[in-house]
Structure formats: structure tokens, C-alpha cells
Design a protein around this nucleic acid. Sequence first.
DNA 1: CGCTTTGTTGGTTCA
DNA 2: CTGAACCAACAAAGC
Length: 684
Amino acid sequence: MSKSARVLYWFRTDLRLHDSPALQAALDLKPAALFPVWCWDPNYVYKHRVGINRFRFLLESMTDLSSNITSTQSKSQLLVVRGEPTELLPELWKRWNITHLVIEKDPSAYGRRRDRLILEAAKKSKVEVVAVQGHHLFDPEEVTKRNKGKPTMAMSTLQKIVADMGAVPKPIDAPKDLPLPKLKDSKAKNLKDTLKELAKSLDGLPHYTGKGREGPASVDLNSTELGGQRDKKVTCYDTVTGEASDLFSVPTLESLGMDRSKIRETIKGGETLALERLAKICKDAEYIATFAKPKTSPGQSAEDPSTTLMSPYLKFGCLSVRKFWWDAEEAKKKYKGGSATGPPENLNGQLLFRDMYACAEHAIGDAFQVIRGNSACRYIDWYCPTAYDKDGQVILPRPPGDAVSEARLSAYKLGQTGFPWIDALMRQLRLEGWMHHLGRHSVAAFLTRGQCWISWERGAEIFDEYLIDWDPCSNPGNWMWLSCSAFFTQYFRLYGLITFGQKYDKTGALIRKYCPELKNFPDKYIYDPFNAPKDVQQKAGCIIGKDYPFPMLDEKETKSENMQRMKICYQANLHGADKEVMNGTAEAMLRKKHGFKEPKEFDWANRPGAKIPDWAKAPEGEEHTTEGAPSGGKKGGANVKKEEEHDSDDDVLGQEDEHKEERGTKRKGATAAKSETGKNKKKK
DNA sequence: CGCTTTGTTGGTTCA
DNA sequence: CTGAACCAACAAAGC
């Protein structure tokens, strides 16, 4: 059989050639032909929330994979076909006389649903399917089976299970050669002719005209109407095989209706860069051996991260997680210093967390993304939850919640909350598609149980759209963790909006970079410019409430109110799959118990506490911008524009030099101000 | 991989 | 030299 094998290798979660057990399985068939295919799935284009940065990173990764294929076999490349895989793949294997379909197993709920259909179609066509695990350290299907179908809700559970599953497999090298993607009667002598023949073989196939197989046919989750970043027409489905001049090529961002000028292209995709970065990190044995996630700083940017920044590459399989695991193990052996760190805080522990979430998602399925129907998720009566119709279908667009929560959610998404730490992190996310893990903790706790009491589903949605490394398991999993809905229960442990960032970086470099309107504030007030006396604000060239929004809520007031609510929700002990949640009575029940109030707008002048600056008591007719650009109208636009004026790296460096020079004098100013207020207090 | 309050310890300054 | 005053660093406990 092996001599006549003709393999369609379908890339999905594995944009790499190194350590790919699935690709190895394909080569083990000793095929006469191997077609490396990427099917440009409209379900990913329309029915998953994907922003500009993640599409950009994916396209870069595909381009790099294609060139790596060509470097290995000059007469081959990645063959990108545009259409619905369940419609298109059967045509390909019919017209290309395929005997075997080889894939890396995609363990996510969508992946499994899609692959079930593909498997059925393959069976009908007598195409043999070979599916191999390679996206995680351990096969989530096998782990779930060993856990009796239950989700893995703790690291200790996962560790216990995988202890009996043997060691993580050692990485295998990239292939030295690849079989040609040739038709049976091919006369092609070079790649260009091969592509022409392949395109000709697909003549007569209608190009794809729908918006994906899943959900309501007309819905485009990435349209601006639904809060997405697609503002132009999608043209990538105008053909099946791409432009005639560039057959089977990687689509462009423009053909997805997206405008790359709206983002910063900070983290570039591809296997080549992933391996370079891994090699560089593993050279530093001490860094690898003593890595402790809680000690890494969230106050650093992607250009100089305190973590490895490998997650985007793991997400698309540009980097094999098993290679990461073993290269880290090798590096640790070289460390001769004191004691090394262990799981869960070390690097391998981080990779195990990724497996834990994948296995939990595997057991729960689609409901892992939401609260309703999710048995692993504690039910809490958040504002702005996902809404369902009588048949249990999600209503899109989501019917608005109360006005204040909607305004807060919008301000949060744009980085206009009035809390510089939160705003800097959210702007970093929106512009660059990445945020440090602990920064994600901070903003997630703030939106949910900390201050806003808004559903983690809304936060997960924003992350879905903006994160490059978004993952259907880790992302909802971490949102449930931080909102104390699952995995984690210590709801009284809450991140301070001023103190948490300050602990890592007193100078507020992240704020100065992403909130340039605040860059001239002295260190003392960079995390809470709203507490700065008016003369300090004037000197900094930024009046709070005018050039930067007032805080949209009172940190301490919301915190204590929400902790009381959490206590009551924990006592009620409802979960997403309970009948009270499914029939919609849970919300009213909990609100009765904790004395539900609509969230109120923050009244600066009457806020509790004794630290009200004189200038705030008498606002001098200045408008309080608690709304903080949530309408997404003129104000938001103006702020975005202002930011982009400070975009270039040179400019950022310039800003940093500036504070270094000025810091000394500004500190003196701040101390003087402090002693003054001290005197005032004594007089009173 | 919390924050805040409270209390302790050990050190410095200065009348 | 003494002792009050202050302060930084840390630990414990409660939310």
C-alpha cells in the first residue's frame, strides 16, 4: 500500500515542519505524492472573533511555513485553497487521487465537530484518515478518558493523571525532504507548472459564497457592527485557488477586509522566528532554571518581555510544545547555580497549565466558552451576560444591559477607564495583540469580580478579538480563574489598580508608553494622576477630566460591594448547567439575596475617603468625563489618533530618556507637595 | 499569582 | 548616655 499512497497533509494547528508527529506519520507512509494543504476556512474568517493582529500573525506564519516547505523541497509549497473544508476537501481528494488524509488532532470543540464531518466524508470516499496528537504535551482525549470524562479542574489532578502516561515524547527533527505534490499524469517540471496543473484540476469548482457553516448564515462576528475590526469587503473567497498570477498563495490582510494601519506589528509570526526565539531564551540557563511566573513583571512591553512570549507561536503550532518542554529541560541541566524552580510556577508548569485547560475544555465542549450550560463554571449574576432566546440560541447583537455597565465595558475595551494601569494594558492589547500574563490577571479581575461586575464572557470576547495567542481552552479557562468562576476560589485576593503595577515598576514605564498623554506626570502620581494636585497636572500638561478621563468608578467602594456579592454567590453555589441557570431564574434569585443595585456613576466630588483634593471639590465647571469615551464616537477617535502620533519606536525611546533626565527634579516637586498636604492635615 | 491593618523588631536621629 | 520619636522591613491576620 505504501508505494501507492498519495497523502493530503492538512495543516491546521501545526504551522511547522519541526517536531510534527503528524507530518512524520504522513512521511512514514512513504507516499508517492504529498500535498501540503491549508484550507482557508470561512468559519474562522466569519464565525470566530479574530482581530487584525491575529489574522496578520496567522498569515505571516503560513507564509513562513510555505517558504520552509519550499526550502526542504524546491518543487513544493503550502497549497492554500479557499473554501469550506467539508465541501472543498472531498473535491481535492477526488481530483488528486488521494489515498490518505493526515492531520494533527485539533482537540477543541469546533475542531472536533468539523473533523467528525470530514471523517464521515473520507469514509464515504474510502480515503484513510490518520490523526495524530501533537498540539499538547499529552493527548487531551486520553487524559479526559483517564479522568472518567470529567474536566481537569486542578493542576494536581492533571499531574496525577499524566504521571501514568509516560514521559513527554522527545522532539523529532524537521524532514530533510518532502514528496512532490504532483498529479498522477503530471508533466510539470517546476513548481510553477505544478501549481498550474493543480489549479486546472480544480476547474469548475464554484468559489465560496457563504459566511461559514456555523451559526446564523448572515452573521459576521468580525464586522464593525458586532464590535469587530472588519470595515471592508472580504474578497479572499472570490476564487478557490487565489489570483491567477499567484496560485495557491497566502491571502492578504486586505482580502480579509482588514486595515493593518490600525495596529502595531510588534510580534511577527512563523516557525523560523519561533525557533530563533526559543534558542535565544534557552541559552540563558539561569533564566530557564529559575523562572517563576509570579516574579515576572507585567510592566514590560513585548519588545522586552519578562516572560518568553512563546504563546502566540504555540497557539498556531509554529513551535512544538514538546520541543519547548525538552529544550527547557536541557537548559536547566546546564544551570549550576542554586535551586531551580518547579511546577506550577516554572516554565514547564506554564505548559502544564495549557494542557490542563485543554483537557477541561475537551470534557466540557462548546459550553466552555460561556456560562450557560457550563457545568465547570460557577454562576454569578454578572452584568451584561450573554443573552439567549427561547430556543437557547445566542442573541446577536447582544441586547444592551444597563447604561452604566455598557459605558464601562466600552471604556474598558478602548483603554479609557481613567485608571492608567488598566488603560495602558488594554491599549497594549488592542494595538499589539499581547499582554503579560499578570497584566491579564489585573484587567480580568477588574472587569469581573473586582470592580465592574461585568460577565467574564464579555472580557473573553475582547481577548478573543485582540489577542494573537487566543486559545479556545486557555482563554475562557483563565477568565473563569480570574473571575473566581472556576479553578480558583479566593475571591478576597484582589489586585489593586494602583498598587499592583507599582509593586513591579514604580516609574510606570508601561503607562508612559501606552498612555502618552500621562507621560510627564512624576512617578508619584503616574498610577493615580487623579490624586495629583492641580499644579502637578498643569505641569504635566494633562488635566484629569479633560486630557485624560476621571476614573469611571470608585475602586474601594466597588471592591467591598462586590466581595459581599461574591460571598453570597458562593453560598448559593449555582453552576452554569444547573436548572435555575438554564431556565433563567438564577439571576433574580441571587439579586434578591444580595440586595442588587444598578451600578452607579462615579460621583467624584462625593467619593468616600478623606483624600479629596481641593481642586476636585470645586470642579470649576469642568465636565466630569466618567463616560470616558465609551460611546466610541469623536472622543475615542481623537484619543486613538493622539496615541498614534507617538507610535514610532524612536519616539518611545525619546520619551524614556526624557523622564530619566527629569525624574530627579520631579521627585523633589512631589515631596514638596506631600509635606504641604501633611501640614494641611495637621492644621485641620 | 492581594491588600490593608496591626504589631513587632531593629535601627537612626536628636534634644 | 538616655529615651522619645520616627521609620523601614517584615510577619500575621482578616477581608
